[in-house]
Amino acid sequence: MARTPGAAGPGPIRVLVADDEPMIRAGVRALLATDPDIEVVAEAADGHEAVELVRAHRPHVAVLDVRMPKANGIEAAAEIRRKMPATGVVMLTTFGEDDYILRALGCGAAGFLIKSGEPEELLAGVRAVADGAAYLSPKVAARVVAHLASTGAGDLAGRRDAARERVAGLTPREREVLSYLGAGLSNGQIARRLHLVEGTVKAHVSSVLARLGVDNRAAAAVVAHEAGVLPPPPPEQR
C-alpha cells in the first residue's frame, strides 16, 4: 500500500532532489539512501525541471536548493505548493540566505535545512514533512529570528515580547501543541506525547495557526522559537 502524502503510512517516502550542482545532488541522494524507508525517485538540475518532475512523479517530498537556474527554489516551491499541494517542500539553504528563508516561509515550504548541518537533520526533515509536519532546524530557526531583528522587522527584544503576547492568547493545551510544533513533531508524534487522539491534535494545530495569525506550521515554529516556547524533554531524558 502506498504512503498517503502528508501523513505517516506504509510504503517508502518518495523524494525528489533538486540542485544545480551534480555533486550536491549525489551527496543528498547517497545520504537519503541510508534510510531504507526513503526512495529518491527523481533528480532535477533547475527549478523548472523540478516542477515538471514533481508533476510527473508525485513525490511525497521535494528537496529544493534555494539558488538554481531557470527558476530558483522559492519560485519552484511556490509552483509546487500551488499545483501539487500533496508534495511537501524542504528547502536547502546556506548561511547568508536568511531572506530566502523568509520568502520560502511565505510560499508554504514546510522544511528548512542548512547544507552544512548534521546529516541526521536531512533525514529527520524529510520524514517530518512526509508526515505532514514542519521541520525547522535549530540553526535555521535561530538565524530567522536574528534576521528578522536585523532587517527593520523589529528589535529582537521587541519581537520576543510580541511573540510572547501572541502566545499568551493560547490555551494551555494549545501552548503545549505549539511547543511541539517548534520542535518539528508531526501530529502523530504530538498525539503520543500528549496522550491524545490525532484528530484532536489536528484541531488544536488549526486553532494555534488561526490564533497566531500564521499560514503554516513552519511559521508557527518561528513564533515558538521567538517566544521561547520549548517542549519538555522526553520522559527518559528528565
Rank of each mutant, 00 (worst) to 15 (best):
V167W: 02
E75V: 01
I80W: 01
G228I: 12
T87E: 00
M23R: 15
V214S: 05
A183W: 07
A163V: 04
L31W: 13
A141D: 02
A50E: 05
G9I: 15
A50Y: 07
A210Y: 06
S186W: 06
R166H: 11
A86P: 07
G169W: 00
Q189L: 14
E118H: 15
R67M: 11
E49M: 08
M91N: 02
V229M: 03
P10A: 02
N187W: 09
S137W: 06
A30F: 01
H48A: 15
A8C: 08
P119C: 06
E118G: 03
R55M: 10
M91K: 12
V40Q: 04
A8F: 08
R175M: 12
V177M: 12
S186F: 05
A56E: 03
R193M: 03
G111P: 04
E165I: 12
M84L: 08
G111L: 05
L170R: 09
V61C: 05
A50C: 08
T93F: 05
V41F: 07
A218C: 01
G154M: 00
P10N: 00
S179L: 10
A157L: 02
R25D: 08
E75R: 00
V144L: 03
A218V: 08
A77W: 01
F112P: 04
A191G: 11
Q189R: 15
A146H: 01
V126H: 00
R81E: 07
P234V: 09
R25F: 02
S179C: 03
A219F: 10
P138W: 05
T34G: 06
L194P: 03
D131T: 07
L53T: 08
A203F: 12
P22A: 11
S150F: 06
T171M: 01
A50G: 05
L53Q: 14
R67P: 06
L170Q: 04
G132Q: 12
R160F: 07
A78M: 12
E118Y: 11
G154Q: 07
A219G: 09
L32N: 13
D99V: 13
Y135M: 08
A133M: 04
E118Q: 14
A227K: 07
R103C: 03
G158P: 05
V89E: 05
I190Y: 05
G96I: 06
A44T: 14
T171P: 07
G188E: 13
